[in-house]
Structures are given as structure tokens and as C-alpha cells.
Amino acid sequence: MFKNMTNLLFLTITILSVMIVLNSNNWISMWMGLEMNLMAFIPLISKSNNHLMAESNMMYFLMQSMGSLILLITVMSNNMLMMINITVNNYLNMILLMSLAIKLGMPPFHFWFPEMMSKMNWYKCYILMTWQKVAPMTIMSMIYMEKLMLLLILMSVMVGAIGGLNQTSMRKIMAYSSINHSGWMMSCMYMHNNSWLLYMVLYSIMLLPIITWMTMYNMYMLNQMKIMTNTIMDKLNMSVMFMSLGGLPPFMGFFPKWMVIQYMIDLKMYHILLIMVMFSLLTLFYYMRMISPLLMINFTINKWLIKFNSPKLMSTIMFMVNMSMPLLMYINLY
């Protein structure tokens, strides 16, 4: 009972700290919200008393503390310099953007992110991939540096696509997928609008059933995919969810990417868009590598490995949600 109450307390603080950042009108209160978020999330993920969890806690604490420290020093420097010129201001904005990239686990500061993901359970990974990114991204959307943002976008899309190709750990694959999606979200910020929030919401909705499925079947490695999914409906659901996450039409995951593509075409950013779409195809390749054994191999499994606890309602909801893309297109057209 006490353990559950402490978990609830830390989860509440994690949610409220992000709300503080979203509603702040000065840098210090934003920094305070980020620090509260860090201090609440560490006890939340350190429930298991094993060395892997302790390692991931320390990794998260060091990287987030370094990002927060750089952010605070930059903000204080900006206040102390009375007569500030444009060049100094640009440098300070650049450092500020880099500190937020460290906190988000965006390239070239991404090395801690997949490593930390590989040491946690799926639901904690889900919080790290979605909710923990909201606060730094909100602050990032207030800073505009054209060339540096373009560099971060391209690096995120490239590293997220290439990094996941050689992985066998499902959690590391999902971490690199998250880095790739972060690049797409950042491209929304580059275009001066808050559509990255819509992208984040849709990404979170698409990711939740996958995480639930992985937790239910206790999947952590790539070779477990063909062992654990046994019914045709399981295979179909898994395939639809991963293709949706890869942004393949007519599934729901194509909608946020289509939105970004439309914005970038309007701004005539064809070269950047081409690079982003091509690397998005690479992410789709490693999703297809996960689901191809399910679709192509009709194998036999031992009876004691079969689980009959597949939730029918959840399967139906997931299938309907991911197939809702044609409906969204219809609403958009009329």
C-alpha cells in the first residue's frame, strides 16, 4: 500500500512539474519545473533493486543534471550581461538549445538514451519516450535558431534510422525510433507552429498499444516476436501497429508525417524533406524486419508456450484506431 502511494506521489509530481514548465513565463520557473521532473522521475524508475536499474538511474541523473546546469548558467549569463549584442545572444541561444538536446537525448548527445531504455521495463520506457519529452520540447519551441535546428533535425532523423538497423534489443530499436520521431517533431517547431504537440499526442497513442503488447508477452528481444505471437489476430495487430508507427498509409501514423510533409512543401523545403522521407523508409525497414517472420513463416510452437490471454477488446480498439486514417483524410478534405 505504502509502495503504491509513493509511486502515485512521484507520478503526480512528474505530471505537475511538466505543467509548471508549460505555464511558466520566466526561465527560472521553467528550470525549476525541469528539476522537479528529474527528482520525481528517478524514484519512479528505481523500483527494482538490481544493478541495471541503478546504472540507468545514475545515467539519467548525470545527463539531466548536466543539461539543467548548462541551461541555468546560460540563463544567468543572459541576465548578467547588461549590454548584450546580437552575436552574444546567438551564442547563448545555441548553448541553450544544446542543453535541451542533452535533456531530450537528441544527437549528438543521444548515447545515454538507448542504453538507459535497455535497462528499464516497458512502461517506464513509454514515459521516457513520451511525457518526459514534453517539457524540454516546450522550451525548445520558444528558441529559434534556423541553422542549428536544421542540423539537429537532420541528425535526429539520420541517427534514429541508422542506429536501429543493427539492434536485436526491442527496447533499443524503440529508442532509436523515438529519436527519429523527435526529429520530425522538431521540424514542426522549425516552422513556427505548435503542431509538434499534435504529433506528440498521436505518437503517444500509437505507441501505447505496442508497449502494452510487449509488456503482456514479456518481449525484450527481436527473436521473441515469432515465438510469442501465436494467433492470426495477434500477428495482424502487431503488423498494423508497427506499420502505423513507421508512417505507412493508410494507417493513422501517416497522418502526423503527412502534416509535416505538407508544411514543408508549403515552405519549399524540398531537399530537407527528401532526406527526412528517405530515412523514414529506413525506420520502416526495421519495423518490417520485426513483423516479416510473423507474416511469412507459418511455424509450429509447443503447447506450453501458447497464451490465451489476448485481450479481444484491446485488439479491436487498436485495429480500429490504426485504421482510422482514411476517416481523418475524409474529414480533412471536406
Rank of each mutant, 00 (worst) to 15 (best):
L9I: 15
L9V: 14
T12L: 14
I13H: 02
I15W: 04
L16I: 15
L22W: 03
L22E: 00
N25M: 12
W27T: 11
W27Q: 09
I28P: 07
W31V: 06
N37Q: 10
P43Q: 12
S48N: 11
S48T: 00
N49W: 10
N49G: 14
H51G: 01
L52C: 06
E55Y: 07
S65I: 07
M66S: 02
L71Q: 02
L72I: 07
I73E: 04
T74G: 15
N79L: 12
L81V: 11
M94T: 04
I95E: 03
L97Y: 01
M98S: 13
M98T: 14
A101M: 07
I102F: 00
K103T: 01
Y126R: 02
K133P: 07
V134Y: 00
I139A: 03
Y144Q: 10
Y144R: 02
E146Y: 00
L148R: 10
L148Y: 13
L151Q: 07
V157F: 02
M158C: 13
I162E: 02
G163W: 03
G164C: 09
Y176E: 00
I179V: 13
M186Y: 08
M186D: 05
Y190H: 00
M191T: 04
N193C: 04
L202D: 10
S204W: 04
S204R: 01
I205T: 10
L208Y: 04
I210H: 05
T212C: 13
T212S: 14
Y217R: 08
M221I: 07
M228W: 15
T231L: 08
I232M: 14
M233P: 03
K235Y: 13
F242Q: 02
M243F: 07
G246H: 05
G247V: 05
F251Q: 05
F254E: 06
K257I: 13
K257H: 12
I261K: 00
Q262Y: 15
Y263I: 00
I275K: 04
V277M: 14
M278N: 12
M278W: 10
Y286H: 14
M290P: 08
S292F: 07
T300S: 12
I301P: 08
N302V: 12
W304L: 09
L305W: 13
M314K: 12
T316S: 12
M318I: 11
P326I: 06
P326M: 11
Y334T: 09
Y334V: 04
